[in-house]
Design a protein around this nucleic acid. Sequence first.
RNA 1: GGCGCGGUGGCGGAAUGGCUACGCAGCGGAUUGCAAAUCCGUCUAUACCGGUUCGAUUCCGGUCCGCGCCUCCA
Length: 449
Amino acid sequence: MSLKLYNTLNKRKEDFKPINPDHVTLYVCGPTVYNYAHVGNARPVVVFDLLVRLLRHDYKKVTYARNITDIDDKIIEAAQESGDAIADITEKYAGIYEADMAALNAGPPDLTPKATDYIAQMIGMTAALIEKGHAYEKDGHVMFSVLSMSNYGELSGRKLEDMIAGARVDVASYKNDAADFILWKPSNDDQPGWDSPWGRGRPGWHLECSCMIEDNFGKTIDIHGGGLDLIFPHHENEIAQSRCAHEGAPLANYWMHNGYLTVDGEKMSKSLGNFVTVHDLLEEFPGKGEAIRMCLLSAHYRQPVDFSRDGIKQAQRQLDRWYRLTDGVEAGEVPETILVALRDDLNTPKAIAELNALAKKAVNDDAAKKQLKAAANLFGVLEKEKREWFDATVDENAISENEIEKLIVERAEAKMNKDFSRSDEIRNQLSEQGISLLDGPDGTTWEKR
RNA sequence: GGCGCGGUGGCGGAAUGGCUACGCAGCGGAUUGCAAAUCCGUCUAUACCGGUUCGAUUCCGGUCCGCGCCUCCA
């Protein structure tokens, strides 16, 4: 079965046909690096990481790019507030971002272009757009002229008249039209800037993605992704810039957008203040990044996921079980059922159901165990050793393995002497320290939990 | 105001014009000195009102409720 993807452009599931069947290209909008990423920010990262894993399974070569916005007014503000240099801030948070996402088993993309490395390209595209009559300079600003484009609004399904009519935007003096957007803006002396034909300034937000794609991939890529909230204006404006700069060539053939992470039904966002950072969550659930990942994949990617600690715990238990089943097992082939589910527009809940079916089978079937391991790995979980997974819960200094083993021996003796109050006391004592004892036919083993 | 999304069991969450997955929790059983873990079994749902249909949770219309975008936002 071939891959089907829901395309925001047509609001339909479509058969995925890459431009070059041997090389799939995809670009996902990455972070603006001025503080910690929250769980909602992590959702697209995990979703598109899974997509890339699937594409890598199905295609010879995949190139995945995710940008870093390291020039932006929010970063400038953060620098002014903290007194730190902009480069220090962006480097620090880019590093934290990469580490936090890696903890969710979302490895770095093939390409991680930074906006500040594309200033020349951005100036070039801006100049080209002016030359082609799609942009104009006014009061030191270079604006994209939305009216110069016939089909502006094709991605978000908006009509220009509607936008202008319902515009809550103040029409700035440098705009010819309320819907026009910034390609290049002037910088004050205390703001970072680069020399340009329009004076010292800095790029508008939408421009970097257009230029990075052009520079790394050419005019048209296969898949462009991001969160739902990027459809308008960000992706709409990327399309406008790129199409107008490229004689109408599409920027991407497939546009994919993940739904929101919500908290009590409301979108998790920095402005609402209802966010939890991935960083904090990893401290709260040490070593359980995979559980957070599972949690984010538990609903279909276009549906909302309501964030809760309970959801993470639930995912953790599921993983506990799969880890026990696949201890020491080598990954085999990914079974077709899982692939079919994922190729159907990344139906992760269906795939998880199949994973559970496999786990049930694996109870007394070694081949199924290998399949489970392989399928889970494709999902981006079960990438650790069982011991490592369970041990992560408790901090190392709490109790040594030696002490645990000694207590187990003591408890075994107590049990032999039918001194059950002593044996239960030992079990409870260990339990309080996060150690669970498992009495099996071959003696007692333990897990941290 | 414009455009859009969604309402499935105690909870999470798929799918489908006819029999509604899967997980968590619960319950019963096996196992256990008792537990834990594991295994087996099991209860509970398609917001409301109409329409189309032999038959709708699924298609259509309306109502109510929740949410989102239109401004930075994953």
